[in-house]
Every structure is written in C-alpha cells, then in structure tokens.
C-alpha cells in the first residue's frame, strides 16, 4: 500500500499518522503539501488532524478549498481510498466528499479523552480487521466534533449502511452518556457509498503502541495495509 498524508498549514497530527502508517505498511508514507496537485501512485490518501489554516473561518473550510483537494476528489472519483481523521473528517465534509458537518461540541469545550467506538460494519477495507459490533478505544481531541446532518441525510446514511463508527459505552451501548460531543445518532465515523472514503473524529493513529496505552487503533491500519497490498 502506497500511502500519502496531505499536509495543510496548521495540521499537527501528520507525524502521528505517519508513524501508524509506517508501522502497518513498513514504508514511510509520502507527505503531500497542500499546493501539490499530483497524487498519482497513491493507494491511500490520508488527511490528518490539526487546525488547518487555524480553523479560523470554520473547521476545515479553507483547507477544503486548497489546490490539493481537487486531486483528492479525483482520487476518490477513481475509486481510490481516502481517510480523514478529526480535522481531516471536517475537511472531507467541507469538501463535499462526505455529507453533513461537524459543529461545536455540545459542551462548548475542547475535549481530550479516550472514547469507545462501536464498529457498525466490518466488511470495509478500513474495518476488516475488526468484528462487527466490536468496541475499541480511541483518543479524541477536538472542539468541533459534533456530527450534524439533517434527518433525510441521516436516514439515507443509516439505510445504506454508511455509518461505520458510533460513540458507545465500554460495553457497546449507544447512549447519551457515551456521546461525548453530542453527535447526532452517536455518529463518530461515516463512509462514502463505495465505502472507499472514510471520515472519523477520534484518533486510532494515537493508539497503535502498547507503550502509549494500547493498540486498539492498529487493526484499522493493518486492515487497510492488507486490503491494499499491491
């Protein structure tokens, strides 16, 4: 799997992501600067977390209009894989690659803590190393992770099985207590209809090493590497 990480000014989790990808693939991912327009040769394009352009207008808004995003759109259009985490998820929604938007956390505070995610389907390239219904732990760190879409969109997402991760209790219950940022229907991650574009708020890339407290996030990257092995 040849992976590339898109770096916008203000992105700050590109190094974390590079470590997780290198661990899974054995190769250093390519760092792609936001002004680049050629993504040829990449199987996976990752948009990592951070505060692109300071998130000063809206989270992800300015990055979504950067030159590289046309190339990301083209890559997705060719059926290429795209992963957006945290700010990356926000950028994908702003770019129209995924529906909905990420609003301020319901608490109006930045949240940095571990959350639990329930895997809603395991027959995707991102989740094939998890079981359906499995609960895993992931750190989250965001001020705007409150997933919003109108009811029709939510119904369509659910109907088409495009909700991939939900905030859950440790035991897998979907309830308000587990829904740390107030997302609609506890949605933490969604995919495009072809299941090749995934966006999620929490950071599986920060939990791939037992020394850092666990390896719950590792199956996502191992699964991708296995699915996209050349």
């Amino acid at each position: 799997m040849r992976a590339g990480i898109v770096v916008f000014p203000g992105i700050n989790r590109e190094r974390d992501m590079a470590i997780a990808l290198a661990q899974a693939t054995g190769a250093k991912p390519r760092m792609v600067w936001h002004t680049e327009t050629d993504l040829s040769g990449l199987d996976l394009v990752v948009i990592p977390g951070g505060f692109s352009f300071g998130d000063y207008l809206r989270t992800g808004a300015m990055a979504a209009r950067a030159p590289v995003m046309d190339a990301v759109r083209a890559h997705a259009g060719r059926g290429g894989h795209v992963l957006g985490v945290c700010n990356g998820f926000q950028i994908l929604t702003e770019a129209g690659l995924l529906p909905g938007a990420l609003l301020r956390n319901a608490s109006l505070r930045f949240l940095s803590m571990d959350c639990h995610l329930r895997v809603e389907r395991s027959d995707t390239d991102f989740t094939r190393h998890y079981q359906k219904g499995q609960v895993f732990r992931a750190p989250l760190a965001h001020g705007d992770g409150n997933y919003f879409a109108d009811d029709d969109t939510l119904d369509r997402l659910e109907g088409e099985g495009l909700v991939i991760f939900r905030y859950a209790s440790e035991e897998g219950a979907i309830n308000d207590a587990a829904n740390l940022n107030g997302s609609r229907r506890n949605i933490a991650g969604i995919a495009s209809p072809n299941l090749r574009v995934l966006g999620l708020m929490p950071h599986p890339e920060d939990l791939v090493d037992p020394l850092m407290g666990g390896t719950d996030g590792k199956p996502l990257f191992d699964g991708l590497a296995a699915a996209l092995a050349a």
Partner: peptide
C-alpha cells in the same frame, strides 16, 4: 457560497 458559509448548515 464557495467559502465563507457552509451551506450545509
């Protein structure tokens, strides 16, 4: 339409 507002929300 293109940048200043996110017309989804």
């Amino acid at each position: 339409r293109k940048l200043l507002a996110n017309t989804v929300i």
